[in-house]
Amino acid sequence: MPENNNPLVLVTGGSGFIAVHIILKLLEQGFRVRTTLRTMGRQEEVKGMLRSGGITRFDDLSFIQADLSSDLHWDEAVKGAEYVIHVASPTPNKAYKDENEMIQPARDGVLRVLRAARDAGVKRVVLTSAFGAIGVGHKNHKGPYTEEDWSNTDAANVHAYQKSKTIAEKAAWAFVRQEGNGLELSTVNPVGVMGPILGNDYSHSNSSVRQMLEGKLKSVPKIYSDYVDVRDVADLHLLAMLRPEANGERFIASSSENLSMLDVAAILRKQLGEDAKNAPTGELPNLVVRAIAIFNPQLRMVASLLGQDMSTSNRKAKQLLGWSPRSAEEAIAATGKSMVKIMKEQKKP
């Protein structure tokens, strides 16, 4: 078999939900891929997820151990790579006492990867940022958010996770501007990510779907979000990596359909029938959610989003890069169907 001389792409955090779909797209398009793992024991797990997505050969995939909290192995990880897609995010401490426990690792991890990429002569880094770096902390905001917007980290009740995403992305842009020496940067800012689940590593949005299907959410908070399919998020990363006009640009990954959590439950019932019979049909009053959040740290970020307009525009990605996302319903249905499959597999003796 002839040697593959196509560009090498480093994808950080290869076991993650978004990262696996990006690796899948890269391998399908003939790129060589190297991916980082904090624990090398997860190699077979990643290959299993890729097999679920249709990959049968792994000649063009390699693994390297690297952790965003350490300088070790990053020079080796980026060696020979033409592009870096930085998806990995430090494992957050959900029971943090000081918000800097989330903010500092996120910022330091991004800078660690960018320094290594610059020093290795990488052409472009695509950073997976988040809607949390765009549309949080704006009281009484009206109309869809665009890439011109940044979250207000000085506002009251902004969760540390969203602060960490905002500060990390701003640090990345500042680094490239001041110390990049020609290193190119693009960012992709996804909203709630749905879509086919290939393994046991999936997003927060997917977890809420599982809770709905299991009947653990009898009623849901009054939160309206935009959604996007993970396959389209992966496509947008590749466009941001390859297209010349993407250099220096941010791109919101969104279907631009604003749905309540109750809308999501209704889509599950419509698309999955009996498998979604436990999906919620009621909403919780905002006062109740805020009261529970006082004692439940995991609800604090949810409570901070109540009553917020979190609609987004995908116009830039569509017009500049020709990106064409699936509908939110298709993305949510894909999550639901693959989650049902996982749940049934896990119940087998």
Rank of each mutant, 00 (worst) to 15 (best):
V220K: 00
P221Q: 03
P221Y: 12
K222Y: 00
Y224W: 15
S225W: 14
V228I: 15
V230R: 04
V233K: 04
D235M: 09
L236Q: 05
H237G: 04
H237L: 11
L238Y: 10
A240V: 12
L242I: 08
L242G: 07
L242S: 14
L242N: 12
L242A: 06
P244W: 13
P244E: 15
E245N: 14
E245D: 14
N247D: 10
G248F: 08
G248S: 11
E249Y: 00
E249K: 13
R250I: 05
I252H: 03
S255D: 13
S256Q: 09
E257D: 10
L259P: 00
L259R: 01
S260Y: 02
S260G: 15
L262F: 08
I267D: 04
I267S: 06
K270D: 14
Q271G: 04
Q271V: 11
G273N: 08
G273Q: 11
E274H: 13
E274S: 15
D275F: 08
D275C: 03
D275N: 13
A276G: 11
N278Q: 14
A279L: 06
P280G: 10
G282V: 05
E283Y: 01
E283C: 08
N286H: 07
R290P: 12
A291R: 15
A291D: 11
I292R: 04
A293R: 07
F295E: 01
N296Y: 09
L299N: 09
L299E: 15
R300P: 07
R300N: 11
M301P: 06
S304E: 13
L305G: 05
L306R: 03
L306Y: 08
G307Y: 06
